[in-house]
């Protein structure tokens, strides 16, 4: 498997699905090691969810969702400062900061990137497990409402 195992657009979802206590602990350690500083204050609040309905293709707001986001600057071993960022459906700015640290470490292959990748794998395995259960919900309840005239008196096959 190549490093990292997912495109960056999927990292937040995967890491956020891993054990939160371990995510926060790893981020705290790496933030200290890499002298993390906020590029902008972390923010927590709401976002309007804009949806395109499917009959007349109008857009409307379905409701609001909690959103937390953060941007951090990390000191790379070569002396450069690089950035990480995170935005997640949550109301904790602290969690967003932790995720931003891990995002920056992974994006720039900084020391600790393999540890972050471990969390990524753990989270992705969680997501895969949920997807498998959802797939089973569909597969086990697939229905064929055949007309009586077509199948006689028997039940579904």
């Amino acid at each position: 498997m190549t490093f990292p195992l997912l495109p960056r657009s999927q990292w937040m979802r995967a890491i956020a699905a891993a054990d939160e206590a371990r995510v926060v602990a790893l981020a705290a350690r790496l933030a200290s090691d890499l002298q993390a500083t906020p590029s902008a204050p972390p923010r927590a609040g709401l976002a309007l969810l804009r949806l395109r309905e499917s009959v007349m293709l109008d857009t409307f707001y379905l409701g609001e969702i909690p959103v937390a986001s953060a941007r951090v600057s990390l000191l790379a071993p070569d002396g450069r400062r690089v950035e990480g960022g995170a935005i997640v459906l949550d109301d904790s700015g602290d969690l967003a900061v932790a995720l931003a640290v891990l995002d920056g470490v992974l994006a720039h292959d900084l020391p600790g990137a393999r540890d972050v990748e471990g969390l990524l794998r753990e989270g992705q395995a969680e997501i895969d497990g949920v997807a498998r259960v959802r797939g089973a919900m569909l597969a086990r309840t697939r229905v064929d409402f055949s007309l009586m005239a077509e199948v006689g008196n028997g039940d579904d096959a």
């Binding site: 960056r8 657009s9 999927q10 990292w11 937040m12 979802r13 956020a16 590029s39 902008a40 976002a47 969810l49 379905l62 969702i65 959103v67 986001s69 953060a70 941007r71 950035e83 990480g84 960022g85 995170a86 935005i87 997640v88 459906l89 949550d90 931003a100 995002d103 920056g104 959802r134």
Partner: peptide
């Protein structure tokens, strides 16, 4: 579950920030 896409604060690329049941 609808995946929610929001711009990454550092890159601007749309990323999946979570999902909502609808």
């Amino acid at each position: 579950y609808l995946p929610i896409l929001l711009p990454h604060p550092a890159t601007g690329e749309l990323i999946e920030a979570g999902e909502v049941l609808i």
